[in-house]
Design a protein around this nucleic acid. Structure first.
Lengths: 152, 152
DNA sequence: GGTAGTAGTGATGCTACTTCACCATGAAGT
DNA sequence: ACTTCATGGTGAAGTAGCATCACTACTACC
């Protein structure tokens, strides 16, 4: 006995978005298996790639987790040789988390595989369709953000 | 210093999809806070709502986790009164996991809030735009599935 | 009725997360 | 200078979600 025999059109649309997202996540999982990294550590490296050398506090903020958790993730990444904890040049309390050569290589290959996936998924679609897709995504995201601000 | 100063158009598109997915996930998190459930247990209830009373094996397959893990999740859900373990009518080895009245109420409200989110996100868009969005999503998902079959 | 496969669980261990307490440093006021 | 308060990081302890492995109970088949 199913609880939703009839699925509304809009709901189906939302499910498609979610489906695509889980597929993308599974591609990321493949990357993680190959590189021997976990999801959280990969995410941290990704953030580090975007922001450059960072304090643990700023990483915690970007990842939206506790600072204590970042300590643990970094312990792992330092152990595997992907990042190092450098002294902060001006604030002696802080450490500047910096990718090692190995870490930078992983970050680059992460970006590369991300880009390649995007190319494979969308590369063959006509420009017009791509534009329309982008517009709808932007509008939907904007709608969502407005919604959350209202509820908060 | 950023590692990807220049972000390709297609990659940006993929990022938008991911962004939207994380927003939807945050909405789900709100539901979980309100109902006092965890993500995994909510997911299990969702599957149960889709499939109806199920064996633990089939739940494990649907969730793509080990059967052992399902046992643990169910221990929690039985404890909180959302589901019960009924004897399987024909196979005495198996249990038939069945939502209680409380569990069914949660499942319904889960579906309701999912539907409402879809309505709020997409409800105001013109049909034509919606159709185009659905087509692109379908094509992209199909492309992805084809890609994974090739790589496997 | 033995043998092989399947459903569920106990034991054990890992990762990711949390909060709380604590220490060291920084920054601001008097 | 000296107190006060805020901030950056970590130790300790606990929870949830996952895994594998070994084991029991049952089913199915020949």
């Amino acid at each position: 006995m199913k609880y939703h025999h009839y699925m509304a059109r809009l709901t189906t649309l939302l499910d498609k978005v979610l489906h695509l997202a889980t597929l993308v996540a599974s591609d990321l999982a493949r990357f993680e298996r190959e590189s021997g990294l976990t999801t959280s550590r990969t995410h941290l490296l990704w953030i580090l790639g975007e922001a450059g050398p960072s304090t643990q506090q700023s990483l915690a903020a970007a990842l939206d987790v506790s600072a204590r958790n970042v300590t643990g993730l970094l312990d792992g990444l330092v152990g595997s040789g992907h990042v190092s904890r450098e002294p902060h040049p001006t604030d002696r309390r802080a450490t500047l988390v910096t990718p090692t050569a190995k870490g930078e290589a992983v970050i680059r290959s992460l970006i590369d595989s991300h880009d390649e996936l995007a190319r494979r998924l969308f590369g063959h679609l006509p420009d017009e369709q791509l534009d329309g897709f982008a517009v709808t995504l932007d509008e939907t995201i904007a709608t969502f953000v407005r919604l959350m601000e209202e509820t908060s």
